[in-house]
Amino acid sequence: MSAFASHDSATKQSAGVAITAEEIAETGGRAPEAVAQYALRLGDDALMLSQRLGWWISRAPELEEDIALGNIALDLIGHARFLLTYAGSAWGKTEDELAYFRNEEEFRSVRLVEQENGDFGQTIARQLLFSFYQYELYSALQSSTDQTLAAIADKALKEVEYHQDHAAQWILRLGLGTEESKRRIQDGLYYMWPYLDELFADEPLHDELEGIAVRPSTLRERTLERVTALLAEAELEVPNVAQARLSAAPRDGAYSEYRGYILAEMQWLARQHPGATW
């Protein structure tokens, strides 16, 4: 059964059965341009964070964390594959063409997910902010009138619930653990906090996609309320720090330094062999 079976428009499909990137590709349906731009944003966030988290596998504080962080990275790359495949349908491009053959300025990830792993505290601080945001995002996106996005959100949400739980458990352990862990997680939070604004920045694209996309600003209050409550429980302070300035168009990479390094490493091999299959 195809997710694109009954309608031509990608925004009015039959109940989504989009389970794998391959299935999304096989449906042969095309996402409209604006929907594709939106999917690209969500997909790029997932891809960049997966790329960052994958680094931890074989370097985590204990074996159980190699597995846990690996799991999260795997879930995220799964989300990235659905979303990039769906986005690419608008332009006749595959997930790999989008992941490996776009330049820095063509990516649409937020700076938060591009930040360096740092120590485990810094990584967990990023996980906290992103997974709590993503949980609200996918909860709302489940009601998208775009059935493919709704189906992707439905599948991803179950996994993000775990990411959120993982982050919350570590925030409590590190916040209430030792003096050193408290200092490190607090430092990590200060480091990541300036990139919150970009997560909730509305763009003209969101006006165009009423009912299809989730307006980022609507997620802010609920996300921060829950993050703040958790920090209080962990006896950590809400960082009192200025937000990093947004570029004229959020997510355009104009103010991002790390993106180039991430892509240099990620894309190098694929670009050395253009047109090759792997």
């Binding site: 994958g54 680094w55 190699d66 690996g70 799991n71 795997l74 790359i77 490996y100 090759a276």
Partner: peptide, 18 residues
């Protein structure tokens, strides 16, 4: 993992190392 040449291979490799 960070250099795998396709997203599918990257996912499979991560799963393997895990």
């Amino acid at each position: 993992i960070t250099r795998a040449p396709s997203l599918k291979r990257k996912a499979v490799l991560m799963a393997k190392v895990q």
